[in-house]
Design a protein around this nucleic acid. Structure first.
Lengths: 229, 229
DNA sequence: GTCTATAAAGTGATAGAC
DNA sequence: GTCTATCACTTTATAGAC
């Protein structure tokens, strides 16, 4: 049972469909099959290198159906892009908003959660970084909407803490280091495996180790400068 | 004075032209203009999103000339790709082969040189990472040729040093951290600027600071575990 | 060497039958 | 809702004049 979807002659091109609550949870509808195929290919190869025909083949349906459901390649991409991006930053937002956790605890949680997430979605960060460079402003609003308040507040707190000498690192460097240490290995995975000679299993083991190691390294950076003895 | 270039009917498609020593250094020949235009567009937008017409326009010449000189979009791309990649890893190779430097000194030099290099070529790392994911094996040989011996040797030394307890970090993590801390900020620059609120000048200042900071952080990681007192 | 014109193939999107 | 057939346009590449 699939809902009918009228095709507007002039769809407002700026509007992006938000994911709707599905009335039937388990059934993999045609619309959903197309979206999953599109997510796979767009995330792996990017917008320009992905052919709509390949998406249709991957979904096991006809090319015409793709346009029937999503009207255009661009609109389908916008939906995937938005969902990928929300997923990518949701974990940060979620953990950093938890006021019962100390800064160290927040870092531990975010690192651990992110390493699991990236292990399961290895192509996502490079996709985000690439397409975000192509649409510098499209996602400004998206970032604000998802983590705007938390970001502003947390960043202000960190700046105060640094100015007062409680932490020995500027917040900008802290953010760069936290995500550099956590995300970069997944982005540079092919090079790293080549350089270190690690196979897939060894690589995953190394990433698991980093759940413990990164918070230790970050904590050291956080320590205020020692008083000259 | 531009050299004539016969067009073979069946060019071996796997062969990639190596950069040749130019007899005339200063003159910007048509061939060179095309290459520079191609480098700019390919590096910014990737292979699939770049049109040969755009390259021709950017170079100020006709589309037919591009094919006259480089035979096909793919061959032109292969040349740019190879040159970009060699440039990207040359600095590492160069500094790590200098046997008069200690490990700490090598790290200082590589970080400093790389931050200047990435500041001048901000689009290069994302290009390398993206296109390298698309051609996993094409560059395996290239890495080996450029830094193969040095890599093997240095990595073996680090493993011995770690096993003997002289350094407190596994070599794989050291490599991941060194390049994560150095390269990642440039790759994630749009996000970082949004999150930290830094403008372009402030961003560049932060990167300059990291020339001093990253070696300090890395040195801390290198320290062997303290004996339990 | 450089151009204009055009071939040849690819690609997004639609019409219309069922 | 789903399909086949096809249009309209883009893009790479070549032919041939100068």
């Amino acid at each position: 049972m699939i809902k009918s979807k009228p095709r507007p002659t002039f769809a407002p091109s700026t509007q992006i469909d938000m994911p709707k609550a599905k009335p039937i949870a388990k059934e993999s509808s045609t619309e959903e099959k197309i979206k999953e195929a599109a997510r796979k290919l767009f995330t792996q190869k990017g917008f320009a290198a992905t052919r709509t025909r390949d998406i249709a083949d991957e979904a096991g349906i006809n090319l015409a159906l793709l346009n029937y459901y999503f009207r255009s390649k661009q609109k389908l991409f916008d939906i995937i892009m938005m969902e990928n991006f929300r997923q990518f930053i949701h974990g940060i937002s979620f953990n950093f908003q938890d006021k019962t956790l100390s800064l160290e605890q927040k870092i531990e949680k975010v690192v651990s959660m992110y390493i699991d997430f990236l292990t399961a979605n290895p192509d996502l960060p490079l996709f985000i970084l690439t397409e975000l460079r192509n649409n510098p402003d499209q996602l400004a609003a998206s970032i604000e909407g998802e983590i705007g308040e938390t970001r502003t507040e947390l960043f202000a707190q960190l700046k105060v803490a640094h100015a007062a000498g409680y932490i020995g690192i500027e917040p900008s460097h802290l953010v760069a280091n936290l995500f550099g240490l956590t995300v970069f290995p997944f982005v540079a995975r092919p090079i790293l495996q080549k350089v270190t000679g690690a196979d897939d299993t060894q690589f995953n083991n190394l990433m698991q180790q980093r759940k413990e190691l990164i918070p230790i390294w970050i904590k050291t950076m956080l320590q205020p400068p020692k008083p000259t003895k």
